[in-house]
Design a protein around this nucleic acid. Structure first.
Lengths: 218, 218
DNA sequence: CTCTGAAATGAGAGTAGCTCTCAAAAGATG
DNA sequence: CATCTTTTGAGAGCTACTCTCATTTCAGAG
């Protein structure tokens, strides 16, 4: 298995993903084309994943379906995995986390952060999210990456926590806190996806957080 | 990145790894050779990782250093990653988990399971473990795999929990419990590795578990 | 409208991880 | 020693990913 490369810079000032708001600003022809290509790649990729599965779908096929060259694919997504994982989550997480006042006690605020996050995700297209989560649940490498603390969302959480505590390096306690929050979010989303994405994700998350608080009462 | 293939069966009845006890039983010439090859591959691999880093070390190099053909490498380890991650952890975890009586309340028992696990690991060669954990901490794909709940140890924990609860499919609560336990163990080990593997891992784990119990008191 | 510079693309060659097949080598067995 | 079984090496092939370089496409200035 090729080790995943570090992020390659995306085409310059690419708005990378979550869209509507950004479209309002007038985009140059170039930027509109890039967006189109990006969307086409994602759309065709998900279609192919649906039809043939993750492994059976090659990057070449995706590129062909989107009518670009294979090399162009990698200009838009550093890895095949990033096609599923990148973009949408990070900015959402970032916004949600940073919008919290700095003096709230931690778990409470994490709870709210997570709920807020889920609410925003929930407002997106349901179908696409569902498909995405199902893929993430089914493909081991995706699943693993979603849980990894060095990757975007969890890593940011940790940084924020460390910063708030006035420390340079995270303590064991902070790391565990971040990991637990991340694992909870991930497991809940995956559980939701596994069960057909029915019902309110936010409710499930409530259940999860309640369980977390009772873990030690046994 | 090539998606990791599903586990390929190891050479037939291979004792795969943790050794001493098994060596006492008289091994045939064939089995002794296999063990030797396995050890050589691992030894040379870690040496090369140390010298050149993970990415710069190719499977071909490892095979050459161990004086076997590249194809033989993959007969012993399904992926390059498995060279670092496989074997030792799973049987230990399995033994530790299954040795718990079935009627203990959960977190308590998980705590003991984890402590027991760490003790046993700790009894291994310190140097090798340190090197291993350092690698795991530093290489993203290894780190990610160690965190993934679908991989061996966590998966087994979940199964066991589900079974004990008399259920067919795990509930959200069980999944979160397993994920939290796994994340705690992983983060603690990584923290230990990141800090030079000084001190007693078991003590750190105590600290981690205490923190877990206070997560909701804020 | 045209010229010029910058950015995006395609073509293609190359690397590494991994799979599969097949024939040769080596240990086990009688 | 002969035969059966397991292990090995050689090598071809696939896919993810990288890099380079020539070509095309847009943007902005005159």
């Amino acid at each position: 298995m090729t080790t995943p490369r570090s992020a390659r810079p995306r085409p310059s000032d690419d708005p990378s993903g979550s869209l509507e708001e950004l479209i309002e600003a007038p985009l140059s022809l170039r930027e509109r084309k890039k967006l189109k290509t990006r969307q086409a790649l994602r759309r065709e990729a998900f279609r192919l994943f649906e039809e043939q599965g993750w492994e059976a779908t090659t990057v070449d096929q995706i590129a062909a379906a989107a009518e670009v060259s294979p090399s162009t694919f990698f200009r838009y997504f550093p890895t095949k995995e990033d096609l599923v994982l990148s973009d949408e989550y990070d900015p959402l997480m970032a916004a949600a986390i940073r919008s919290r006042p700095a003096d709230e006690p931690f778990l409470t605020s994490a709870r709210e952060v997570l709920v807020a996050l889920v609410r925003r995700i929930d407002a997106q297209e349901h179908a696409e999210l569902y498909q995405r989560m199902r893929l993430t649940a089914a493909v081991p490498s995706l699943r693993a990456r979603m849980l990894d603390g060095t990757n975007q969302p969890t890593g940011m959480l940790l940084e924020l926590l460390t910063e708030r505590a006035g420390l340079d390096a995270p303590t064991l306690e902070l790391r565990i806190t971040a990991a637990v929050v991340s694992a909870t979010l991930t497991e809940t989303s995956l559980y939701w996806a596994d069960n057909g994405a029915r019902g309110d994700l936010a409710e499930l998350l409530d259940r999860a957080l309640r369980h977390l608080q009772e873990l030690d009462r046994s």
